[in-house]
């Protein structure tokens, strides 16, 4: 399956559209004249992150050692034979348990790396774009760099799904230089996008005023405000709470609920809305419930959970239209 990215009416061509996506995410500054400078700066910053976070300790140590050797001649002498024993400082030995050991840190992080690897491999495996090794590597590196730069969030399962549409559209930029730098650009766009939803990913905020539980209860309030009958049927009669179905909707920004191209369409609405992505997402979630209200009202617990975990979307525009009508009503 290869997708043709459907352009919103306002965009003249794909490159323009992609710039607008990056503008909306706050990655590009509003002043167009600054773009080349800004892009260059960010791309080289990402390249520095890659060096810092992706080299394994032996490469890092080698680089440190290399920088200590002033002349190339000496380097050749050392390389030609075995590394003299004295050169492996005890602290940096792979079997050292010292807290500061680069290897120790490396092993601790290996669990996250395994998790990222596993999930990257199962990101849209039906699409050739995502089964390509080089693209999988890009996704993997972005997620690793992100996890290292955000120790309070690290990597949360499902982030691969949020990352995938961004990388797909930026990598398909007809401008070759942009496409070649898609990994760096995607990283920053992803970080910007996730920053608006960061609290949902933090376990330590689960019971706070800003964590995922509070976001789910906002959805519940929104539904109650707009369709009290449906709200009552769901939460009082059948006890189908948002935790059972909307947890995934919200933390993954609907990426698992719809097909890839429908998801991109919905994201355009989420990103472009002046109310901001978090509130817009909640309105769309509420609209999803209202759109299937007739079926929900006759459904029991089992039927309703199954319906909402496998959401039957028929008309995206209609969904967005309903979401639009709920504007200005998300409790802050």
């Amino acid at each position: 399956m290869n997708l043709v990215i459907q352009l919103p009416l306002c965009a003249r061509n794909l490159s323009d559209y992609l710039y607008s996506v990056q503008l909306l995410l706050g990655y590009l500054p509003t002043e167009r004249a600054l773009w080349p400078y800004e892009l260059e700066k960010k791309r080289s910053q990402y390249s520095a992150y890659r060096d810092e976070f992706l080299l394994n300790p032996s490469e890092k140590i080698r680089r440190i050692e290399d920088s200590k050797l002033p002349r190339k001649k000496e380097l050749n002498v050392v390389r030609s034979g075995l590394l003299p024993r004295s050169q492996v400082i005890n602290e940096e030995h792979p079997l050292s348990f010292g807290k500061s050991s680069l290897w120790n840190k490396y092993f601790q992080e290996s669990e996250i790396l395994e998790q990222i690897d596993r999930d990257v491999k199962r990101t849209h495996p039906d699409m050739p774009f995502f089964s390509a090794k080089s693209n999988q590597e890009s996704l993997r590196r972005i997620l690793i760099v992100f996890s290292r730069l955000n120790p309070s969030v690290l990597y949360v399962q499902g982030m691969n799904e949020v990352l995938a549409p961004l990388f797909y559209v930026l990598k398909n930029d007809p401008d070759a230089s942009n496409s070649a730098s898609a990994e760096a650009d995607t990283f920053f766009c992803f970080a910007e996008l996730v920053s608006g939803f960061k609290n949902n990913y933090c376990k330590h905020l689960d019971n706070s005023q800003v964590g995922i539980r509070s976001t789910l209860s906002k959805l519940s309030q929104l539904l109650k405000k707009h369709d009290e009958e449906l709200w009552r049927h769901m939460e009082v009669i059948t006890k189908v709470y948002p935790q059972y179905y909307a947890f995934r909707w919200i933390t993954l920004l609907l990426t698992m609920e719809f097909s890839f191209n429908v998801c991109i369409h919905i994201w355009d609405a989420i990103l472009a809305d002046p109310e901001g992505p978090p509130d817009t997402l909640l309105r769309i979630c509420c609209a999803m419930l209202i759109l299937v209200r007739k079926r929900l009202l006759v459904g029991d617990f089992t039927a309703n959970i199954q319906l909402l975990q496998h959401y039957p979307l028929t008309n995206v525009d209609h969904l967005l239209h309903i979401a639009n009508r709920l504007r200005g009503t998300v409790a802050s």
């Binding site: 199962r122 499902g158 059972y244 947890f247 995934r248 698992m256 089992t302 959970i305 975990q309």
Partner: peptide, 8 residues
């Protein structure tokens, strides 16, 4: 895909 939350 990875299970997010819980499937039923």
């Amino acid at each position: 895909k990875a299970t997010i939350g819980a499937d039923f």
